[in-house]
Amino acid sequence: MEMGIMEFINVAAHNKVIELVILAIVFDTVFGVLRAVKEKRFNSCAGIDGAIRKVAMLISLVFMLAIDMLIKINLIGFIPETVRTYLGLSTVGVAEFFSLLYIAYEITSIFKNMALCGLPVKKVWAAVRAFLTKYTDELPDTDELDELPGDSTTGSVKTERQQEKTE
C-alpha cells in the first residue's frame, strides 16, 4: 500500500504517544526558560544545546514513524505490563518505543526545572524518580536537586559553586 505525504503527516499528527512527547517538550522548554530567567543564565533547556536536542528528538521520531510504516515491528514486550495497561497500548512500534523513552527523559527534566525554579514539587519529583528507578538505572544527574534543603518542598539552589584550585 502506497501512502502519500499528506497521509503520513496525518498519521504522525494523530499519534497520541508522539503528541505526549511534543507536550513534554513544550513543558520542559517553558520551565527551562523560567529557570534560566531565575538564574539569569542559559541552561540545558533554554539554550542552543537544549533546542538542538529537542529538534533532534522530533526529527528522529518522524524517521522512526516512517520505519514503522515500512516495517511492522511490535516492541510491546519491552514495555512493562503496568505501563502498557496504564497507557492502553496494544502495539508499540519503534517510534512509540522511543517516544516513551523521550517522555521519561523529558519528565525528569521538567520536574528538575520546576524544583530549581522553587516550585513545591520535591515530593512529586521523589515519587517520579522512584517510579523511573523501578524501570531504569539511567536517570540523569540530579546533584542540583539533591542540594535543595531537607524535607522542604521549595528551595533555592546555589548559583555559583566553589571550584577547587589546582596548582
Rank of each mutant, 00 (worst) to 15 (best):
M1P: 02
M1K: 13
M1T: 13
M6D: 15
M6I: 13
M6E: 15
E7A: 14
F8S: 06
V11S: 09
V11W: 06
A12T: 10
A13F: 00
H14F: 13
N15T: 03
V17D: 08
I18E: 05
L20P: 00
V21A: 05
I22H: 10
A24R: 01
V26M: 08
V26C: 08
V26Y: 08
F27D: 13
F27Q: 15
D28A: 15
T29S: 15
V30P: 04
R35P: 01
R35E: 04
A36K: 10
A36T: 07
V37W: 08
V37S: 13
K38H: 06
E39S: 10
K40T: 06
K40W: 00
R41H: 06
R41A: 09
R41D: 03
R41T: 08
S44N: 14
A46R: 03
G47F: 00
I48P: 03
I52P: 01
R53S: 11
K54A: 10
V55H: 01
V55N: 04
V55D: 01
A56Q: 13
L58N: 03
L58P: 01
S60C: 00
L61A: 04
L61N: 00
V62Q: 07
V62G: 04
F63L: 09
M64A: 04
M64P: 03
A66S: 11
D68N: 05
D68L: 07
M69P: 03
M69F: 07
I71S: 10
I71T: 10
K72H: 12
K72A: 11
I73C: 07
I73G: 05
I73P: 01
N74Q: 07
G77I: 02
F78I: 00
I79L: 02
I79C: 05
P80Y: 02
V83N: 07
R84L: 03
T85V: 15
T85Y: 15
T85K: 15
Y86R: 12
L87F: 14
G88I: 01
L89S: 05
T91M: 08
V92R: 00
G93E: 03
G93I: 01
A95P: 04
E96Q: 08
E96V: 05
F97G: 03
F98D: 03
Y102Q: 13
Y102D: 05
I103H: 03
I103M: 00
A104W: 05
Y105E: 12
Y105P: 02
T108I: 09
I110Y: 06
K112A: 10
N113I: 04
N113P: 04
M114H: 01
G118N: 06
L119A: 13
P120K: 08
P120Y: 04
K122L: 00
W125F: 11
W125T: 05
A127M: 07
V128K: 06
R129V: 06
A130M: 12
A130Y: 12
F131L: 13
L132K: 11
L132V: 05
T133K: 15
T133S: 15
T133P: 02
T136C: 10
D137M: 12
L139V: 03
P140T: 00
P140M: 01
D141H: 12
T142R: 13
E144D: 15
L148H: 05
L148V: 05
P149A: 09
D151Q: 12
S152L: 11
G155F: 07
G155E: 09
V157P: 02
K158D: 08
K158P: 03
T159N: 14
T159G: 14
Q163T: 08
Q163P: 03
E164T: 12
E164Q: 12
K165F: 14
E167R: 10
